[in-house]
């Protein structure tokens, strides 16, 4: 069976990572920005898995599980904060969050 070469996974992960980064930079909705960060984390996950598969090593798989758990915890707190923002301002548009500056 012809295996997909590791490079392909890595390139996919890199593309996902860059997409996520771009999303964080340009999207205006706080929730979408947050999802883009999740995309970046998953790109890292994919990289771990690709390398683990190449080497037949379990460390990468293990890492992926930990990252998923951490991402879940982060999501819980993150969504709570987004809700707090929405409550105090009635919007989750990042553009409007600049009370503190200079």
């Amino acid at each position: 069976m012809q295996l997909v070469p590791t490079q392909h996974y890595l390139i996919l992960a890199a593309v996902l990572f860059c997409l996520g980064m771009l999303g964080v930079l340009v999207r205006r909705n706080a929730l979408v920005v947050f999802m883009c960060v999740e995309l970046m984390l998953n790109a890292a996950n994919l990289t771990f898995l690709a390398f683990a598969r190449e080497r037949g090593d379990v460390t990468g798989h293990l890492s992926a599980f930990f990252i998923i758990a951490v991402a879940a915890a982060e999501a819980a707190v993150g969504l709570a904060i987004v809700i707090a923002v929405f409550r105090s301002r009635g919007t989750v548009n990042i553009d409007e969050l600049h009370t503190m500056k200079h």
Binding site: F17, A30, M40, L41, A44, T47, I81, R87, L97
Partner: peptide, 30 residues
């Protein structure tokens, strides 16, 4: 509005930088 705004900025940028670190770790693992 300040605490929620501060929390949000910290969270988004912190998660962003956390993802950078993690991706770096993945490459080093590779």
């Amino acid at each position: 509005t300040r605490p929620a705004e501060a929390g949000f900025k910290y969270f988004i940028l912190g998660a962003f930088s956390g993802a950078l670190l993690l991706y770096g770790a993945a490459l080093l693992y590779g």
